[in-house]
Simulated scan of single mutants.
Amino acid sequence: MLLRRNRRAKPPPFSHPPLRSRVAGRTLTDFVVATVQEAAQHAIEQAEVTRLSLADQQRFAEALLTPPRRSPALQRAMARHDKLLRTE
C-alpha cells in the first residue's frame, strides 16, 4: 500500500506584501509604490554602470594619464569654439 502525502510549503512570513507593509509601518499602496521605485532605481543604476575588463581599465587609465596629441582639426575646432564663446 502506497501512502501519498500532499503538503504545500508555506511562503516565508515577510514575503506577503500586506504583512510586510504593516511591519514597515506603511499602507499597502505606499509599500508597493516604494518597492517598485526601489526596484526601478536599482535597474537604472545597473544599466548605467559600465563594466570594463582589467585590460580595458588599464587602457582607459593610460588614455587619461597620457592623452593623444591634438590633431589639426581638433585645434581648429577648439579655436572656433573659443571665438564663438568669447565675450568682449
Rank of each mutant, 00 (worst) to 15 (best):
R22G: 13
T87Q: 12
L74E: 01
N6Y: 04
R4G: 00
R20Y: 12
R51C: 09
R26C: 14
Q41R: 14
P72C: 05
F31S: 13
L52F: 07
T27E: 02
T50M: 03
A9Q: 09
F31M: 11
A63E: 03
A43C: 03
R4T: 13
L84V: 05
A77D: 08
V33Q: 13
R70K: 09
E38H: 12
G25Y: 15
I44C: 09
R26Q: 15
R22D: 12
T27G: 07
L84H: 06
L52G: 00
D30M: 12
E45T: 02
R70T: 06
D82T: 13
R76W: 10
L28V: 10
R5M: 13
D56N: 07
R8G: 04
L85P: 01
R69Q: 00
P18K: 06
Q46R: 07
D82W: 09
R86G: 02
E88T: 13
R4V: 14
R59K: 12
N6G: 05
R7N: 01
M1L: 14
P68H: 01
N6T: 11
P18S: 08
I44F: 10
L74G: 04
P12F: 01
Q58A: 10
M78R: 14
K10I: 00
A77Y: 02
A34M: 12
R80C: 08
L85S: 01
V23T: 15
R70I: 00
P18I: 04
Q58G: 03
A73T: 05
R76S: 11
I44D: 01
T29N: 04
R4F: 13
R70H: 00
R22F: 04
H42T: 04
R76Y: 01
E88L: 10
E48S: 11
A47V: 04
R69E: 03
A24G: 08
A43D: 06
L19M: 07
A73D: 08
R22Y: 10
D30V: 13
G25V: 15
D56F: 04
V23A: 15
M1S: 15
P13S: 08
L65Q: 11
A79N: 10
E45P: 02
P13G: 02
P72R: 11
P72W: 01
T35E: 14
K83S: 11
T66K: 02
R51H: 07
Q58R: 13
K10P: 03
A63K: 12
E38T: 10
K10F: 09
R51D: 03
A43H: 06
H16G: 03
A34K: 12
L19Q: 07
Q41S: 14
Q75G: 03
R8V: 02
E62M: 07
V33S: 11
L74V: 06
H42C: 07
L54C: 00
T27S: 15
R86W: 06
L84C: 10
A79T: 12
H42D: 02
P72A: 08
H42P: 09
L74N: 10
P72V: 02
A61Q: 09
V32S: 09
R76I: 04
H42I: 07
A61H: 05
T27Y: 10
